[in-house]
């Protein structure tokens, strides 16, 4: 079970890091340059239409057959779920930046704030307040999506639990432990997202 937990956490770490870092960078690029925004939007619409499981299976079987390669299922799962996370995060960041009320920047400009001060004291705090709660919720969904990796033979926590259960047949403690793991990780993240939303985004409600 511990080995499965480690695989799940490794998978999560890759998906979260790539999604947050690359998704944020692509989101910023998309908000700044239209030639980047258009293909990103088209890609995210197509990706949103394809269920995560279908993408995972497509990358695991047909794509590898087409390319004539065999890739470790862990890498396939990490890549497929990272692509989804990057797309979701870049969509979120791009939309928050694109919809940022220019008037707050005007107020900063006429108050004599420099561009750097405006970004640091006005834009960044407002953008973070608008982004972080949704970002956390996306990461929770991505953590739960790692279960799909079990279907392409990645020995993550769910597949390990299934294996142990098939050997000893004690579904109640095994699946309860599995549920407990997700509760222990997801509930604090949900709580944090809720706290941040209540604590900070209320300040934006004037608009």
């Amino acid at each position: 079970m511990v080995a499965g937990l480690r695989v799940t956490l490794d998978l999560c770490l890759i998906i979260w890091t790539s999604g947050i870092v690359l998704g944020t960078l692509l989101g910023i690029a998309g908000a700044k340059w239209k030639p980047v925004a258009v293909p990103l939007k088209v890609f995210s619409i197509i990706l949103a239409a394809v269920p995560a499981l279908v993408l995972l299976f497509w990358m695991h079987y047909p794509l590898q057959t087409l390319l004539g390669v065999v890739i470790d299922p862990f890498i396939t799962a990490a890549t497929a779920l990272s692509i989804i996370n990057i797309s979701l995060v870049s969509d979120l960041v791009r939309e928050v930046l694109r919809d940022f009320p220019q008037q707050y920047v005007w107020a900063a400009q006429v108050s004599g704030l420099t561009e750097k001060e405006t970004v640091l004291h006005v834009k960044l705090p407002i953008v973070l307040r608008q982004t972080i709660p949704s970002l956390l919720n996306i990461q929770i969904v991505m953590l739960q999506s790692t279960l799909f990796a079990s279907l392409i033979s990645v020995d993550e926590i769910f597949r390990t639990a299934q294996r142990i259960n098939s050997l000893v047949y004690r579904p109640i403690p095994i699946y309860s432990l599995l549920a407990l793991f997700f509760i222990l990780v997801c509930v604090p993240l949900h709580g944090l997202a809720y706290y941040l939303r209540v604590r900070f985004t209320r300040d934006l409600s004037e608009r």
Binding site: Q103, V110, P125, L204
Partner: peptide, 19 residues
């Protein structure tokens, strides 16, 4: 190089920084 805040504006919609 705009003359801010030598010339400044208070807008009708105020635009106080909400955070």
């Amino acid at each position: 190089k705009p003359p801010w805040p030598e010339v400044t504006v208070v807008f009708q919609q105020l635009f106080l920084w909400p955070h």
